[in-house]
Design a protein around this nucleic acid. Structure first.
Lengths: 235, 235
DNA sequence: AAGAATTTGTAAAAGACTTTTACTTTCCGG
DNA sequence: CCGGAAAGTAAAAGTCTTTTACAAATTCTT
């Protein structure tokens, strides 16, 4: 099967690299790997993978510099692997152009879910002819982009313009986290850190209208210190 | 001078036709004329004038049918001449695609102002490459389309989004009247007659912010029963 | 594991904008 | 000049946005 997705892993620790490779190969992905940043960059451009999984803690190069280097010439989706618990690193990687991140240690399901999300999103945002879907669906929620309406279990949920805009934005990147500053920039057109509060209040209002009780959010999930993510699991 | 504007007058009453012709020729326009609707339509397509001045009360054809016929194949600006005091006719003509109207009797200055406005607007909306201006200026008011800001006498006037949208819309068609339904459709996306009230209230608020006193409106003028017009006279 | 610090959640107040209402003023034909 | 229709406008009512103040959850520290 030659139309399998090609995934490049840039990771110096061999046991993690092997772990990831095994999972991906078992799931019909074609896997390439590089052990340092220099080789990794070269392979991105010589092998044009469909997805890059990148460890931020490489010995020879700073992970963020590597992302910038790749982004200068490629839109390939990048998932960042981060051992560090420090949120700031994740946020920076995402704002530099990474598409998602996974914190070590991670589960098989988590890895596969992220990979699927990254590949799906990149298909829908092909350069030039951006594929536009009419609807988004997760669990019992349906978003009609044409009507700008959202229904849960067939019953319409009445959102304000701002609320709808936020939910639509997250849904068009379902499965991947969007940083606070990304969201704020797209919703309000500028980005000051004070706006995070507005976003959180809107989030709370949306969740209440979605009929969700505190502690059991099914649609929009928070990533501490980073941002929000629209769930795409059917569960 | 061959780049003079060519204006076609479709008018059955010879004294009006001659009156208009004389005024226009004196002002360096090239004038063509037709005495009935049939000839008029033919000439629109055979002589491709830059502007059509059309009497609504022709003997052989209903004026509105004539507008529709012209609009099927041409975007030439049309100024309607109407003896009738009935506003409904003007509104219908405008909604069918006429660009402006003049009520008989009219003054030389009024005719020339309308002609200039119609020709100017059509230049800025050339098919395909719509020419976009960065600023609009009339008297001491300046609208910056990039900044979405309006200043009068150098002092910024703070408008709400809706208010700004209305003023911008009128300014991009300065000198010509826009019907209530045209404005409402563009501002609120739908058109129900009840919205005229909302528009009027917004108008009142804008005018107050512009520092205009009742009865001396310099920027936005009302046309009874028809709509609003952004003034373009420097006076 | 308990407590401190940070981050997120949320109710409610405050503020801004929109829409409706009710009334006044202006316009225009007779 | 009068009367009806249309436009103007102040203010009330309603909705949405933003801020505030505090509660709850999460993570870090010890």
């Amino acid at each position: 099967m030659s139309n399998r997705h090609r995934i490049l892993i840039i990771e110096d620790e061999m046991n993690i690299c092997n772990f990831v490779s095994t999972i991906l190969e078992t799931n019909e992905y074609q896997v390439l790997s590089a052990q340092d940043g220099k080789d990794g960059t070269t392979m991105v451009f010589s092998h044009h993978p469909d997805l890059v999984i990148l460890d931020l803690g490489l010995p020879d190069m700073d992970g963020n510099d590597l992302i910038e280097k790749i982004r200068e010439n490629s839109d390939v989706p990048i998932i960042v692997l981060s051992a560090r618990t420090n949120e700031w690193d994740k946020v920076k990687a995402l704002d530099l152009g990474a598409n998602d991140y996974i914190t070590k240690p991670f589960s098989t399901n988590e890895l596969l879910a992220r990979v699927r999300a990254a590949l799906r999103n990149s298909r829908h945002q092909g350069v030039g002819e951006r594929m536009i879907r009419k609807e988004f669906q997760v669990q019992d929620m349906i978003i009609s982009y044409e009507k700008r309406r959202i229904s849960i279990d067939g019953k319409e949920v009445k959102l304000t313009q701002t609320e709808y805009n936020i939910v639509e934005l997250l849904s068009t990147h379902a499965g991947r986290v969007l940083t606070y500053s990304e969201i704020i920039k797209k919703i309000w057109g500028y980005s000051d850190s004070g706006s995070v509060k507005k976003l959180q209040v809107n989030m709370a209002n949306v969740r209440k209208k979605f009929g969700e009780k505190p502690g059991e959010y099914r649609y929009i999930l928070n990533e501490l210190g980073v941002g929000y993510r629209m769930n795409q699991e059917e569960k």
